[in-house]
């Protein structure tokens, strides 16, 4: 390890830390689980009502379960099952992503967030 290596690692960790603090600072308990397939919103589920919703995409299905204020993907027929293994989410900005199906479950707050306007 040379000195520049350590500087590099420090720089990366600082960036990671800033990102992390930024995300957690902006994370508030969410109100809705928004399900998006290829950038179109297909369903908006309130987190305070336990329910199960099956997302049918061209590539396959994902089952999204809302329970105890958390949203979770409990079942899917995608190749890697990354979405099923992802932890359940409840705070604004948190996401569960299924890349093979191009499906995203994200948590949003009560009011529309500015960042959504930017992305859209």
């Amino acid at each position: 390890m040379k000195r520049f290596d350590i500087l590099l690692v420090a720089a990366i960790l600082v960036v990671a830390g800033i990102c992390y603090i930024y995300y957690t600072h902006h994370a508030a308990p969410g109100a809705y689980a928004v399900i998006t397939v290829e950038d179109t919103v297909v369903e908006k589920l309130p987190l305070d009502k336990d329910t199960t919703y099956t997302v049918q995409t061209q590539a396959g299905y994902n089952i999204v379960t809302i329970q105890d204020g958390f949203a979770d993907v409990t079942e899917a027929d995608c190749r890697d099952s990354v979405c099923v293994e992802s932890k359940r989410i409840s705070k604004t900005g948190e996401t569960i992503v299924c890349l093979p199906h191009k499906m995203v479950v994200s948590i949003e707050g009560d009011t529309e967030q500015e960042i959504d306007a930017v992305v859209g």
Binding site: V15, A16, C19, Y23, E38, G93, E94, T95, K102
Partner: peptide, 14 residues
């Protein structure tokens, strides 16, 4: 995915 929110994972991936 056309969704920038995926960058949420960036700190952990770094």
């Amino acid at each position: 995915v056309e969704n920038i929110k995926i960058a949420f994972y960036l700190p952990l991936l770094l």
